[in-house]
Simulated assay, not measured.
Amino acid sequence: MVRYSGSSKGSGGSKGNVTPVGNWTPPACWYEPRTAEDFEKHVENMYTETVNYPGQHSYAKTAVGQFREMYKDGKYKNYNLDKADEGTWWVAVQDPDRWLEPAAQLCNELPFWVVNGDTPNVPNAVTPEVLAELAYSRLQLPETEVTLAPEDITKVNLPTWAWLDKAKFKEVDVTAQINVGGLNIQATTTAKPIALKLEPGTRDAETYPASGECEINDGSIGEAYAKGKADETPPCGIKYLRSSGDGTFKLRATVTWEITWTGTGNPNPAKLPNGTFGNTQNITVQEIQSVNR
Rank of each mutant, 00 (worst) to 15 (best):
V2N: 00
G6V: 10
S7L: 05
G10A: 10
G12V: 14
G12T: 11
K15S: 11
T19H: 10
G22V: 07
N23V: 06
E32P: 04
P33R: 13
A36F: 11
D38P: 06
H42S: 11
T48M: 14
Y53F: 13
P54R: 15
H57Q: 03
Y59C: 08
Y59E: 12
K61D: 02
T62N: 11
Q66S: 15
Y71K: 09
K72L: 07
D73N: 06
N78V: 15
L81E: 09
T88C: 05
W90R: 05
Q94V: 03
P96I: 01
W99K: 12
C107R: 03
L110T: 04
V115N: 14
G117D: 04
L131K: 03
L131D: 00
L134K: 03
L141H: 03
E145Q: 14
A149T: 05
P150L: 04
D152H: 13
V156E: 02
N157L: 11
L158W: 13
P159F: 04
A167R: 15
K168I: 11
F169E: 06
D173P: 08
Q177P: 01
I178G: 05
I178W: 01
L183F: 15
N184H: 05
T190W: 02
P200R: 03
G201I: 14
G201W: 02
G201Y: 00
T202A: 08
R203S: 13
A210G: 07
E213L: 15
C214K: 01
C214G: 00
E215V: 15
D218C: 13
G222Y: 05
G222Q: 02
K229A: 14
D231Q: 14
D246N: 10
G247F: 10
G247N: 14
F249V: 04
R252F: 04
T256N: 00
E258G: 07
E258I: 05
G263A: 10
N268H: 09
A270H: 09
P273N: 02
G275Q: 04
T280I: 13
I283M: 07
E287L: 11
S290V: 15
V291F: 13
V291Q: 05
V291T: 09
V291A: 02
